[in-house]
């Protein structure tokens, strides 16, 4: 079979993806520690600062996460065809149809699917939700990081409530990101096996393949 090569993902999108993915790994690892610190040193007169170190990494990763989200926000409007929100959010009849085609493909009802060069719309919809979850995560995060700022206090009280309530929402949303990561990894590997389009490698080299229509 002949394949057509497509340039699917820009360098900025790939950079965004890896900054986002690696920052989530760091945020979840350190976040779980901050919630329930499992080291209990009982050693005095030393300076190892496990909690301070974990929080430091958490905050740095939080800024990387924020930078990644801002880059993705830019690409939603100014990226290439595959990267703009119009291409993968369920905002057109064609896109909504793609959600159901993809659901049928994933549930083994249909074998054809509705192939896209960019995201399928089911994935795109989940990415849209993830984007909103990320926005909530970084807003609640900054509210907790800068408790003395009246600006963050205003936003935080309006969106989440007290620090404790913001903290609880921040914690629950962490589990969303863990679940997302598991489902995302499984589905990209599954798609890579089912559809020979170079999906996994496309997030490294930006290139995807499509069977040539003869």
């Amino acid at each position: 079979m002949l394949y057509v090569q497509h340039h699917a993902w820009s360098i900025l999108l790939r950079l965004y993806h890896w900054c986002f993915a690696l920052s989530i790994v760091a945020l979840v690892t350190t976040g779980l520690y901050i919630n329930a610190p499992w080291t209990n040193t009982m050693i005095e007169g030393s300076s190892s600062f496990p909690m301070a170190t974990m929080r430091y990494i958490h905050f740095i990763a939080g800024f990387v996460f924020t930078g990644a989200i801002l880059a993705r926000l830019y690409l939603l409007f100014f990226g290439n065809k595959q990267e703009r929100f119009w291409d993968f959010l369920p905002v057109t009849p064609k896109n909504i149809k793609n959600v159901f085609e993809t659901l049928k493909l994933y549930s083994y009802i249909s074998d054809k699917g509705d192939h896209r060069i960019g995201h399928n719309v089911l994935a795109g919809t989940i990415y849209g939700l993830t984007f909103l979850a990320a926005a909530a995560q970084l807003t609640s995060g900054f509210y907790m990081l800068y408790p003395e700022s009246l600006a963050w206090q205003g936003w935080g009280l309006m969106l989440f409530g007290t620090q404790q309530e913001a903290r609880f929402i921040h914690h629950l949303l962490m589990w969303y990101f863990i679940l997302f990561a598991v489902a995302h990894l499984y589905l990209v590997i599954w798609n890579d096996v089912k559809t020979k389009e170079g999906l996994v490698s496309s997030i490294f080299n930006g290139t995807k393949y499509e069977p040539k229509k003869l």
Partner: peptide, 29 residues
Amino acid sequence: DKLGRPRFAYGRKIHDHCERRAHFDEGRF
């Protein structure tokens, strides 16, 4: 502050002035 509390008394979190804060940062609980 945004909840109508005087900033001189409610401007900071308890955690940031706590005498046990060093133990928190050191991971001693």
